[in-house]
Design a protein around this nucleic acid. Structure first.
Length: 475
DNA sequence: CTATGGCACGGATT
DNA sequence: AATCCGTGCCATAG
């Protein structure tokens, strides 16, 4: 109820009035959390009319809210009529990463780790005993130039120059760092990370003989699962290559820091980093299982027009008055637009959660195929608005997986999942056409050719090659 | 001969 | 208008 009234208030005051308004709203909608954060920070530093009012934590759950608003989750009494989701905008500046613990009964801000800082200190603690006192600044420098995947952004040469030291010294330090826990961290490329991981692994385990060579020379082909191709190059049966490939996929991680994001599957076609969700879905505790949907606002409070500024402008000196007035309008516009953006997001999510409830709870097989234009129709907005809403944003499901919102519109996903299921269940290999008829029986209308395509997307080998392999335990 | 992957076309989606 | 996706045809590997 509370959240509803909140939304209505917004609706009234938020009709876009000018073209500038619309244009800005649109461009804001396109941004994801991080980009928005950037934008707001820029704005804050350049426009004195804008200020951020701190939020206050809800005493029971710790979520942050503006002073006069109570927490919709805690103030929500469970006997309320409908089973619609609790949905609200949740401001947070330092939100990064995934909730680590699996129990989500209570919300504990401590459980949300701050990825970047934590990665630094985490790694640093490990290497500290192994490096010389005088190398510490260099090590710190290296750690601070890691990107969110744990890869090194700056070149080793640059770092060496910066510290007026030799390249080999830097590389020495690098190799120490690379061998501590997120193994391969501070590598210069995914390939290097893989190689380091192989190296470390081979000290204690048996590694397929070709693994190293494949990673260093044929990574391109490997990422496309062209096992036969690679096999031809090395003159070995593709079964062997595929076993090696499986080993690599199962045991290595091209983006070292992502091991911290739970068991995030390395999606076959993604180089993108999905780290800060723009929307978080969790569930309330047992009896009334409702979704709690948080639209994450990337700034730590509420954006407002600075009241001091309002006062000051009244007796502004003549020559400044015009500029000040302009700043003021600009700030007001931005605030409105951001609210509009949030409003759209809220409406969008409400509908999505309703439609895809099964998917959110039960996983890929239950995804309903939905198009953006359908959503646009339902919400009475233009298609492109939905496109913008979806673009580049991510969402965290109750099972802690972070997925791009666009996945919710993937028409093929549920069929791919179904194929995976079929292949995992049947123990004698089925040919593509058999799978195709099987799918048709179950109501999925797909051609044989398409099955083949999906298979390769999923990284599943053709029937003949599946013969002798130990059942693929990919989940 | 069968199963599969490549290329490319057309229709849908964004 | 640009892009993505499913599918059909054909060549090729087994």
């Amino acid at each position: 109820m509370l959240n509803q009234s909140y939304i209505q208030v917004q609706k009234q005051s938020l009709r876009p009035l000018t073209t500038a308004h619309i244009a800005q709203t649109m461009s804001l909608l396109l941004l994801n959390g991080q980009e928005l954060k950037q934008k707001i920070e820029n704005e804050l530093s350049s426009n004195p009319a804008l200020e951020v009012v701190q939020n206050y934590p809800c005493p029971t759950c710790g979520r942050l809210f503006p002073r006069n608003r109570s927490c919709p989750v805690c103030s929500h009494n469970s006997e309320v009529n409908d089973n619609s989701a609790i949905i609200f905008v949740s401001p947070r500046s330092d939100f990064y990463g995934v909730k680590k613990s699996s129990s989500d009964e209570t919300y504990d801000p401590e459980e949300y780790m701050v990825s970047s800082e934590d990665l630094h200190t985490y790694v640093f603690r490990q290497i500290a005993p192994d490096i010389n006192q005088e190398d510490i600044p260099i090590a710190k420098h290296i750690l601070s130039s890691l990107d969110k995947d744990g890869l090194l952004e700056q070149s080793d040469v640059e770092i060496a120059q910066y510290h007026h030291t030799s390249l080999s010294r830097v590389n020495n330090i690098l190799s120490i760092i690379q061998r501590v826990d997120p193994i391969g961290v501070a590598s210069r490329s995914p390939k290097e990370a893989l190689l380091v991981q192989l190296d470390v692994l081979s000290e204690n385990y048996e590694v397929p003989p070709l693994a190293k060579s494949i990673v260093s020379d044929q990574l391109e082909l490997l990422s496309r699962h062209s096992y036969t191709e690679i096999g031809r190059i090395y003159g070995v049966p593709s079964q062997e290559i595929m076993a090696t490939g499986k080993f690599i996929i199962d045991n290595l991680n091209p983006f070292p820091a992502r091991t911290h994001w739970g068991n995030q599957r390395t999606e076959p076609h993604s180089n993108q980093t999905y780290q800060n969700p723009d929307v978080i879905i969790t569930e309330t505790s047992k009896p009334t299982k409702k979704f709690i949907i948080e639209i994450v606002s990337p700034y730590s409070g509420q954006l407002k027009i600075n009241s001091l500024y309002l006062e000051a402008i009244k007796n502004a000196p003549k020559e400044k008055a015009e500029k000040w007035q302009k700043d003021l309008e600009h700030a007001g516009l931005l605030i409105k637009c951001i609210k509009q953006r949030n409003n759209t997001l809220v409406r969008f999510m409400r509908l999505i959660v309703d439609l895809q409830r099964n998917f959110i709870l039960n996983g890929d097989t239950h995804l309903k195929p939905i198009t953006r234009s359908y959503i646009a129709d339902e919400l009475n907005v233009h298609e492109s608005t939905i496109s913008r809403t979806v673009a580049g944003k991510t969402i965290q499901l109750p099972n802690k997986k972070i997925i791009p919102i666009s996945k919710l519109f993937d028409r093929s996903l549920c069929i791919r999942a179904e194929i995976r299921k079929i292949i995992n269940e049947e123990n004698n290999p089925l040919s593509d056409s058999k799978i195709s008829t099987l799918l048709n029986e179950r109501g999925y209308n797909v051609a044989r050719r398409t099955v083949a395509k999906y298979r390769s997307i999923e990284g599943i080998l053709p029937a003949r090659l599946r013969q002798n392999t130990i059942n693929p335990t990919q989940i």
